[in-house]
């Protein structure tokens, strides 16, 4: 009897191990069918300005996978928590050239280029690795939608904005491949694994 149990446990372990090995990250979002082809949800073309006044667009990011979030500097609620988790992920991939980090402010009126520059400097991160982006408010809020993040201007919310703390992983083609809750540190280790899985996917099929 114990042999049978051992066999079952061993098979299960083997199965899980194989499954782990060959795991392919899903492409999140609704699918569209155009001319008979199924198209996965993609982040639409965008152009924003970073903390060094440089243009960052879907094109300039097309050779990278990137980890992104939405925040604002005066946020007294969830942002510092999310940033702390972003920093954890950043520390892990600081030397991995395929990965970039993108933080969109949802308060472009106050968070201009110089405010973002000051913020990122104080956060102590590499400006060529982690972009803090500002731009037209409507465009920022629209793209937040595309990342399944909520961003709303709300007078009753602390400091005037309400938003969610999702951290998103986008691939080179603009598909969302993984996400986690920046407010929940327990979701971060799996997300870090997902980033590595995506890196491997590109390394295996160059």
């Amino acid at each position: 009897m114990s042999r049978i149990i051992l066999f079952v446990v061993a098979s299960l372990l083997l199965f899980t191990a194989c499954k782990e090995e060959s795991r392919i990250l899903p492409k999140y979002g609704f699918e569209d069918v155009v001319d008979g082809d199924t198209l996965n949800h993609k982040i639409p073309p965008f152009e924003f300005i970073n903390q060094d006044s440089q243009l960052v667009s879907n094109e300039s990011l097309s050779d990278f996978i990137y980890v992104s979030d939405f925040f604002f500097i005066h946020c007294p609620t969830i942002c510092p928590k999310v940033k702390k988790q972003m920093l954890k992920i950043y520390d892990k991939y600081e030397d991995e050239s395929m990965v970039k980090f993108v933080s969109h402010t949802i308060d472009p009126k106050r968070d201009d280029v110089s405010a973002l520059k000051d913020f990122s400097t104080k956060l102590g991160v590499d400006h060529d690795k982690w972009y803090f982006l500002t731009g037209e408010k409507d465009e920022i809020y629209d793209i937040a939608d595309d990342y399944f993040n909520i961003a709303i201007e709300d007078e009753t919310a602390p400091e005037g904005f309400d938003h969610s703390g999702k951290i998103i992983l986008t691939d080179k083609e603009g598909h969302i491949r993984a996400f986690c809750e920046g407010t929940d540190p327990e979701t971060i280790p799996q997300f870090i694994k997902d980033v590595s899985t995506l890196i491997d996917e590109y390394r295996q099929t160059p």
Binding site: P80, K81, K83
Partner: peptide, 15 residues
């Protein structure tokens, strides 16, 4: 804890 975080470690050179 919103800014200084639950474990009190703050954030970069900001908080």
């Amino acid at each position: 804890a919103g800014c200084h975080l639950e474990d009190g470690t703050g954030l970069g050179e900001i908080y």
